[in-house]
Deep mutational scan, measured.
Amino acid sequence: PDLGLTQLFADPNLIENLKKNPKTSEMMKDPQLVAKLIGYKQNPQAIGQDLFTDPRLMTIMATLMGVDL
């Protein structure tokens, strides 16, 4: 199971919303991170391994779920 990750990354406004959010806007200036996020739309399971190697993803996930870290 993808634990709902498919829906989190399926939002067509995902990148724009993250660019507008004060907690994630600075991160979204990294083209490699943006490319990763776009890739998760097609393969949400890929985030599982990346969560352990890129701490920014935890902040992004929390933001998408509405959790304040």
Score class of each variant (00 low, 15 high):
E16D: 10
P22V: 05
I47V: 12
L8C: 07
P12A: 09
M58V: 13
F52N: 08
P44E: 04
T6F: 12
M27D: 02
P1S: 13
N13R: 09
F52S: 09
E26H: 11
Q7T: 12
N21I: 04
Q45R: 07
I47N: 05
Y40G: 02
D11L: 03
M58D: 03
L5R: 05
L8N: 03
I38V: 10
M58P: 05
G48C: 11
E16R: 06
V67L: 15
Q45W: 10
N21R: 03
T6S: 13
L5D: 04
N17D: 09
K19W: 05
Q42Y: 11
D2L: 10
R56S: 04
I47T: 04
A35C: 06
L3F: 14
K36S: 04
T6K: 12
L64Y: 05
T59K: 09
Q42P: 02
V67P: 11
M65G: 07
T24A: 02
P22G: 04
I47A: 09
E16P: 05
F52V: 12
M27H: 04
L18C: 02
D2P: 14
K19S: 10
N17K: 15
E26P: 06
G66R: 05
Q45G: 14
D11A: 04
K36Q: 10
N13C: 09
L3C: 11
T24P: 00
T59E: 06
Q49S: 10
D30I: 02
E26V: 07
L3Q: 13
F9W: 10
T53R: 12
R56K: 05
I15D: 00
D50E: 12
L8Q: 04
K23I: 12
P31R: 07
P44D: 04
T63S: 07
A10H: 10
F52E: 10
I60P: 00
G4A: 14
K41P: 04
I47D: 04
T59N: 05
Q45I: 10
L33M: 05
K23D: 05
A62Y: 13
T24I: 06
I47L: 15
P31A: 08
F52L: 14
G48W: 15
S25A: 14
D11C: 06
D68H: 05
K19D: 02
D30Y: 01
D50L: 05
L8P: 03
L8D: 02
R56T: 04
L51P: 04
G39M: 14
K19Y: 07
Q7F: 07
P55D: 06
D50Q: 05
K19A: 10
A35N: 09
K29C: 04
V34R: 04
G39I: 11
L5F: 15
Q45P: 06
N13K: 10
I47H: 07
Q42V: 11
Q32L: 14
L18A: 02
I38Y: 08
K36G: 02
Q42T: 15
M58A: 08
Q7N: 11
I15T: 02
A46L: 14
R56F: 06
N17S: 13
E16A: 10
N21W: 06
L33A: 01
Q45E: 15
T59W: 13
N21K: 03
L64F: 05
L51C: 08
E26R: 06
L57N: 01
V67D: 13
D11R: 03
I60H: 00
K29L: 10
L64K: 01
K29Q: 10
K41C: 08
K23T: 09
Q32C: 09
L14R: 01
I60M: 04
P12K: 05
K23H: 14
M28I: 05
L64H: 03
D30R: 01
G4W: 15
P12R: 05
K29M: 08
M27N: 01
D68E: 04
M65P: 03
I15S: 01
M58R: 11
T6C: 11
P55F: 08
Q49H: 12
L3M: 14
D2G: 14
G4F: 15
Y40A: 04
D11H: 06
K23L: 13
P22I: 06
A35R: 09
A46C: 08
K36N: 04
I60C: 02
G66S: 08
A62S: 10
T6N: 12
N17A: 11
D2R: 05
V34W: 03
L69R: 06
G4L: 15
D11Y: 03
Q45F: 09
K41Q: 15
T53P: 03
E26C: 07
A10E: 11
A62G: 10
N21V: 02
L69V: 13
P1Q: 11
D68L: 02
T6W: 11
M61A: 12
L14V: 09
Q45A: 13
L5S: 06
F9M: 07
L3I: 12
M58Y: 14
D30Q: 02
K41E: 05
F9D: 01
L37A: 00
S25P: 00
T24F: 07
P1M: 09
G48P: 11
M28Q: 00
S25I: 06
V34I: 13
